[in-house]
Every structure is written in C-alpha cells, then in structure tokens.
Design a protein around this nucleic acid. Structure first.
Length: 498
DNA sequence: TTTTGAGTTGTTCGA
DNA sequence: GTCGAACAACTCAAA
C-alpha cells in the first residue's frame, strides 16, 4: 500500500476558477489526495458578471468549458458532477462548504488584486465555519518569488529572468498532477444539492457569435488546438509574425481559463528542441514574467511601472475621444490598424503582432493614454489576462518594466508592408479595400485618383482618410516623452542638491 | 563595491 | 536597394 493514498480528511470541496480542467490540476489533486470524498464547484461570480455588457464571448466560453469539465469529471467517475452556482463567490462557497460538511476547500492561486481580496474574504468566512482554504500554484510554472536574482530581489528585466527561469526549470516543475490516481474519490451528489449548469439566458446574457467562430472550448478544445499546433511549432518563430498565416497556437484563451495546463505546454515545448519551440517557450516565460511583475508591483494596475512616466500628459478632451472612437471602431484610415481592430471586434482575438501595432498607434500616433487601450482589450479580448495585458500595454507605451525605448515608434505602414506584404490580412477584414493593388493597400491615401477609382474606392466615403499624419504624430510623441526625461533629470538634480 | 555588458518584437537617415 | 549608425542615455543583473 502506498501510505500517501490514505486520506487524512473526510470531505473536501474543490473550487474551480481559472483552471477548468480535470487533468493536471494542483488543487484537484491535493483535494483528492487528502480526502475520502471530493466535490467540485464553479461559481459564476455576480461580482464579476453583473457589471459586464450582456454580450460577452467569454461568458459563453466559460459555460461551454464548464460543460466540458463536467464531462471530464464524469468520465473519471460516473456519479461525479460539477456543481455550478450563480451568485457572489464568497457567499456561495461558504454556503456550499457548510451544506456539504467539508473539512477543507481547495483552490488554485489567482494573484490578480481583486482575486486576492476575494480569496482573503473567502478564507475568513470559511474559517468562521471551521473550514480551511488551501491554495496552490497551478496557473504558472513559477510564481511570486520562486525566481529571484542572486541578491534575492525579483527580476524586472525579461532576459535575465528568462535565463534564471530556464536554469531552474526541470522535470519536477513540469510534471503533471496525476489526478486520475484518486479519481474514485470524486463523490456523488446528495439529492438536495443541485448541479445544474445554467444556460446563458438564465444568467442574463445574450448569445454571441462564439459558436459561429468555431473557437474550440474546454480542455477537449484545447487538446485539439495543441495537436494542431505541435506539428508546426518549429516554424513558429517566423510564422508568428504574419497575421495572415496560421502561425500561433491560439491557446491563449485556454491558458486564461486553465482549460490547458501550463506545465504540459512548457514540457511539450522543451521536448521539441527546435528554434520555433524555443521562441514559443519564451512566450510562455513572458507570461510567468508578467504575473510575477504584477505580484511584486501591484501599482502597475492603474499606474506606470516607472513612476516618472505617470507625468506624461496624454491627449484628452473631445478631440482625443473622437480619435479613440475611431481607433476602437477601426476607422483610423490606416488599413493594418483598422483590420486589426475589426479582428478583435468580430472575434475577440487579435494577432500578437497586431496588438503591438495598434497599441503603438493608440499611444504614439494618437497620443492617447495606454490605460484606455488596456481597458478596451480587457473588455474585448477572449484571452484577456490582467498581468499580460497590462505588461503588454506598458511595454508598447514605453512606461513599463523592460519597456520598448520611447523613440522606438512603430510605423503602421512599414509594419503593414513587412508583415502583410500581399495585404491578405487586410483584405480579409477590410473587403472594401480588396481591389486595391498590393503596393497601395497599406496606405490608400497615397494612391492616385485613377487607382482608387479602378478599385472602386472613394476616400472619405468607402474608407476613411488617415486621422493623423504619422510623421507629425511621431514628432509630437518624441516631444511628449522629452517632458518625462526633463522631469526625471530635474528629480535627479533635486536629489543631488539634497 | 565597482565595473561591465546588455537590453522582444523598430525607424529613419545618409552613404 | 542595402547597409550601418543614430536614436539617448539608463538601469538592471551579475561578475
């Protein structure tokens, strides 16, 4: 007999949040190992859902993934059910834990500020009932203070962080939690506990086009995407740069909701040993990096990582609002930017290079606060993750840790010529420009009247003229950042004077 | 403690 | 068309 198989607890509850899978799940494993009977619950949290617009692809993604998770649990133990509740998470968890008479609740870490508050409140309410809340790392390979510099401080520059990450990682950190080993402990529900998975309408949401987009959901969908990606991972390093090509894994939304295990992905990337796999692993390490940054520097929510950069005066007022609306709605007159915004608006996804292009455009061409763009992505991206989204926006705006230098300003036309040379991506999302020749599709305003006429386009009617001139905007941005530099120099001079 | 090397993804200019 | 340099110093991490 394996002594570790003797459970120390009678009953436990697993609280699923952003880890919607039954395999390789730390909290589920620890609960199954510890208790004789284990129940599983997900709470559709009203604190999160109620403020949302009634159309949100992510809510549908979650419901579909919950159905998948329920199926995964039943496949392991036919009487097992995923309990789904709709209410305030803390109250629902405490009530259910009490009703089931569990000794402990198990969950995985979520280091977003609001989630930490929620978990602290849950821990307190459960403690009042004499129930423990045990939490585990699951969402990242290394979290919090697991990767530190030699002097014991958190890294703020990616490359040395990555080197330390790679040095530390080994089979131990990437092994799967063998949840199947104790699957028989998944318990049936008593008759008075409902496991009902509500419909979209029952929680007050309207159907989106998620199903029409054929975005794979649940851990079953994630498995299909991974199987599709691994054969082309060697080409990822170059293919990922071209938005018209199927280069990425499209697993980001699954990493967001935990329908795939980060350990499995990192292990798969390491096993491949191709240049492309190394680049992809790097992207996974960026994800750990930004989660770790958020944990150590929670001020990045709402503020520049570098305080000096909070002195930047972004444009505001009616003109800025109008430019922002043009950006949101994809009518800036820069085809690659507009096509990218059409992609996010129509699908909830945007290609990574385009995220950089539109972020650079919003902050450096339109002079608009990166937080406006961050908020737009937060509400529109299916894969929205606070840590990565904030890190990405601050990188693009040059306000973040290890940010792009502020004078490195993307040229939306050059990016278009380089990464969508045949305008394939642009034509997919801006069919009104489809008949423009490849050479002109990146900057329609440079086309001769005859060329526009031949393509059936009248600027200002079928497609907007550019809302700003890139060269002018570039000069204004350099001036805007020069103010930061001056204020930083002043601060240094003040410090020297003291 | 001091020194040294290095830093995701780019653009523009001039030769 | 292609190439190298400048962009602007600054901070981090490690030796």
């Amino acid at each position: 007999m394996n002594p570790s198989s003797t459970p120390s607890l009678d009953r436990a509850l697993v609280w699923f949040r952003r880890d919607l899978r039954a395999h390789d799940n730390a909290a589920l494993y620890h609960a199954l190992k510890a208790a004789r009977a284990v129940w599983c619950v997900f709470v559709l949290d009203r604190d999160i859902l109620d403020p949302l617009p009634r159309l949100d692809r992510r809510v549908e993604f979650i419901l579909a993934s919950l159905a998948d998770l329920d199926g995964q649990l039943r496949a392991r133990q036919p009487q097992a059910r995923l309990i789904v509740r709709h209410g305030r998470a803390v109250d629902e968890i405490a009530a259910l834990a009490k009703a089931l008479g569990v000794d402990a609740v198990y969950a995985n870490h979520d280091d977003e500020p609001q989630a930490l508050q929620r978990d602290a409140a849950a821990r307190e309410q459960l403690a009042a009932l004499g129930i423990a809340l045990h939490t585990s790392k699951d969402h990242v390979v290394f979290e919090r203070s697991e990767v530190l510099t030699q002097s014991g401080t958190p890294y703020t520059v990616f490359t040395p962080y990555k080197n330390a990450w790679l040095k530390k990682v080994d089979a131990f950190y990437l092994r799967a939690y063998p949840t199947d080993k104790y699957a028989s402990r998944l318990a049936a529900l008593a008759a008075d506990v409902a496991a009902h998975l509500p419909t979209l309408a029952e929680i007050g949401f309207e159907p989106t086009n998620l199903a029409a987009l054929k975005i794979p959901t649940g851990s079953t969908g994630a498995r299909a995407l991974l199987d599709d990606f691994l054969p082309r991972i060697a080409e990822y390093g170059t293919a990922r740069d071209y938005p018209a090509i199927k280069g990425p894994s499209y697993l980001s939304v699954h990493l967001r909701f935990g329908t795939v295990s980060i350990r499995e992905l990192a292990a798969a990337a390491q096993a491949q040993r191709s240049a492309g796999a190394a680049v992809w692993l790097s992207e996974l390490i960026w994800r750990d990096f930004y989660h770790q940054i958020l944990h150590h520097h929670p001020h990045v929510v709402g503020h520049s990582f570098k305080p000096d950069y909070d002195r930047i005066e972004w444009d505001h007022g009616a003109h800025a609002e109008a430019l922002y609306a043009a950006w949101c709605e994809g009518r800036t007159g820069y085809p690659l930017v507009d096509a990218a915004m059409a992609q996010i608006n129509q699908t909830g996804y945007m290609h990574n290079r385009l995220r950089m292009v539109v972020a650079s455009f919003l902050t450096k061409d339109l002079g608009i606060d990166w937080r406006w763009g961050e908020r737009y992505f937060a509400t529109h991206l299916n894969d929205f993750d606070l840590a990565a989204n904030n890190g990405g926006w601050q990188w693009a705006a040059s306000t973040g840790c290890d940010a792009q230098p502020y004078f490195r300003i993307f040229n939306p036309v050059t990016q278009s010529q380089k990464f969508d040379p045949q305008g394939k991506f642009i034509r997919r999302y801006l069919p009104q420009l489809a008949r423009l020749p490849d050479k002109l599709i990146h900057a329609p305003w440079t086309a001769r009247p005859l060329d526009l006429q031949a393509a059936g386009i009248e600027l200002g009617r079928d497609y907007p003229r550019p809302v700003v001139d890139h060269d002018d905007a570039r000069a204004r941005t350099l001036a805007r950042f020069a103010v930061v530099k001056a204020s930083a120099a002043d601060a240094d001079a003040d410090a020297d004077a003291d």
